[in-house]
Design a protein around this nucleic acid. Structure first.
Lengths: 141, 141
DNA sequence: CTCACTGCAAAGTGTTTGCAACGTT
DNA sequence: AACGTTGCAAACACTTTGCAGTGAG
């Protein structure tokens, strides 16, 4: 967990208990939580933490690229500390978000965007919407 | 433009002047307007039209898949009547959105999501964030 | 000791809703 | 004539802000 504190320091962010708690929660889960989810999760251990602090913290972490903010057409943003390139699969039924790696070669696309359009890509989203295996099976019953 | 009225009827939506105006505006532009932009654009010809009507209309059109709603991490949604599969390039400087076709073979990815994960894809977003050619050049001067 | 951060409450902003009047079918 | 749609204003939900008090460096 020391790594997280190092990351904060490297970005000139003060290492506060709230930031460590939020950042390490994001680094430990693959559930792509919303601000609300983060807040509820940490409320038990940090009863005094305010929702506004969670908002401010994820904004800071996002601004120095320690976490990624994304929107899947829901009414709120989700956050992810995983910086590997991967796609998100949103199940439109259970609203869980799954990660998908592999089979996506984007280097070539990014290269073509640069050479054909002059567009310099610095980040990308790849989101698939559909029904996950669990929901499909539950529906069959 | 009769085609649009047919599309509305086919989805059991009444053909009102407001809907035609909004839908044909979306079908005629490639600027991926927001609700605000649509409203401002139509205000001149339809001074009585309300913002709420624009919201309700795009929701109806989106629900019957006549237009697509997407979010590029801005504080509001954008709309697009173009149903061809294509990616969006958002310039983080001028905030224009460009379409990109080609070089993206997603059929294979969708197939793998189905066979490896059991995930049935029904829609997808592919968004690239970066600096467009115009902004890069203007910056150089 | 200083300045960034926190927590609270209030304000802001995009979006939705309730309902009476309206207009398509 | 019936019922979906419109327009207005009020309500909502998520997010941001102002500011006094706090605590990391």
């Amino acid at each position: 967990m020391n790594k997280l504190a190092e990351n904060l320091k490297a970005n000139r962010l003060k290492v506060t208990p709230q930031r460590l708690a939020i950042y390490s929660y994001l680094a430990s889960t693959n559930e792509h939580p919303t601000v609300e989810t983060i807040y509820n999760h940490l409320k038990e251990d940090y009863p005094a933490m305010s929702l506004a602090t969670v908002y401010k913290t994820v904004a800071s972490l996002r601004d120095c690229h320690l976490i990624r903010e994304f929107n899947l057409g829901e009414d709120c943003n989700r956050y992810d500390a995983n910086s590997d390139v991967h796609a998100h699969l949103l199940c439109t039924k259970c609203h869980r978000v799954f990660d998908y790696y592999g089979d996506i070669d984007l280097k070539h696309v990014i290269y073509r965007l640069k050479t054909d359009f002059g567009f310099e890509t610095s980040a990308l989203d790849m989101n698939f919407y559909g029904i996950c295996d669990d929901c499909k099976n539950n529906n069959d019953k």
